[in-house]
Amino acid sequence: MSGMLGRKIGMTQVFDQAGNSIPCTIIQAEPNVVVQVKMAEGKDGYDAVQLGFGTRKPKHTTKALLGHFVKAGVPPLRVLREFRDFVLDVKPGDEVRLEQLFAEGELIDVVGVSKGRGFQGVVKRHGFGGVGSRTHGQHNRERAPGSIGASSFPSHVFKGRRMAGRMGNKRVKVKNLRVVRLFPEHHLILVQGAVPGPVNGIVELYKKAQ
């Protein structure tokens, strides 16, 4: 799907004509730079457009990436992403702007990396209720997971059992978010609802296939 990169700014609310409050996420999507165009007929084997977002100092860029940027004739960029089946006819060095892809009222998909919560127990991670109140001298069972399987048979814990572990810091896609407002002069897009990730986190905006 066609799309572009942006940065999550925060949340706000707008009001419709009936006076209803619509919670919105503000995303700053400055013009993305086309770094590479891949063709199915060539050695790549598939059609895709690689876009770059954000600036990066040359001294903080590897020589391999510097050569990649020099070949495209663009300055070093912080984030690179590929978008397949791109609807615009572009070439390396071109800019992809917000208003070229999106319009108010349409539905888009947004991908971000969720906030990392570290190692968490089952109560916070999966919403367990805990074993219950303290009884018979127990003092550390309120937030325990309880039984995790049989003993002698099958003598192992089944894969996928909900247990304690790392929470968050995963790639999350939220589908069908409505574009509420576009501010092309400020490179801002307001989408209805929440978007995964922290403030200033990088997000990917995907245009729905027509």
Rank of each mutant, 00 (worst) to 15 (best):
K8R: 15
L205F: 02
G10Y: 00
V172A: 06
A194Q: 12
V14S: 01
V174R: 14
G42M: 14
V179T: 03
V123W: 03
V111P: 08
F158V: 12
G127I: 11
F69I: 11
F102G: 13
G52L: 06
G193N: 04
L190S: 06
P92E: 06
H156D: 12
G197S: 10
K207A: 10
G3A: 03
K71M: 12
F83L: 12
D85S: 01
V74N: 10
V14H: 00
N140H: 02
R171D: 02
Q28D: 01
L66N: 08
G137T: 01
G160I: 06
P58L: 13
A209L: 02
L190Y: 13
G116H: 08
V14P: 00
K207E: 03
L205A: 03
K175N: 15
L77R: 02
A209G: 04
T55W: 02
L182F: 00
L98K: 13
D85V: 00
L77A: 01
G146D: 04
G10T: 02
P31D: 11
G165C: 14
D109K: 01
G127C: 11
F102R: 09
N200E: 10
H60S: 09
K208H: 15
V174T: 13
G6S: 04
A194G: 08
K91W: 02
K124P: 03
P31L: 10
H139D: 10
G10V: 02
G45Q: 12
M4G: 01
F83Y: 14
D47Q: 13
F86T: 06
V180D: 01
R78P: 01
G93Q: 07
V74G: 10
H136Q: 06
R178D: 05
G201S: 14
V157L: 12
N140C: 06
H136A: 08
A18Q: 11
R162Y: 00
G127F: 05
V122D: 06
L66H: 03
G127D: 05
Q210A: 15
H68S: 07
L51R: 03
I27S: 09
S152H: 14
T55N: 08
F83I: 14
E99L: 12
V74Y: 13
K8F: 12
G45K: 11
D109G: 05
G45N: 08
G73E: 09
P31K: 14
M11R: 09
G45Y: 07
H186D: 07
K38W: 07
G129M: 05
R134F: 04
P58F: 13
V70D: 10
G93H: 12
R78M: 12
G116Q: 08
C24Q: 10
L190W: 03
Q100T: 07
L80E: 15
V180F: 00
I202W: 11
E95M: 05
R125Y: 04
R7I: 11
Q36F: 07
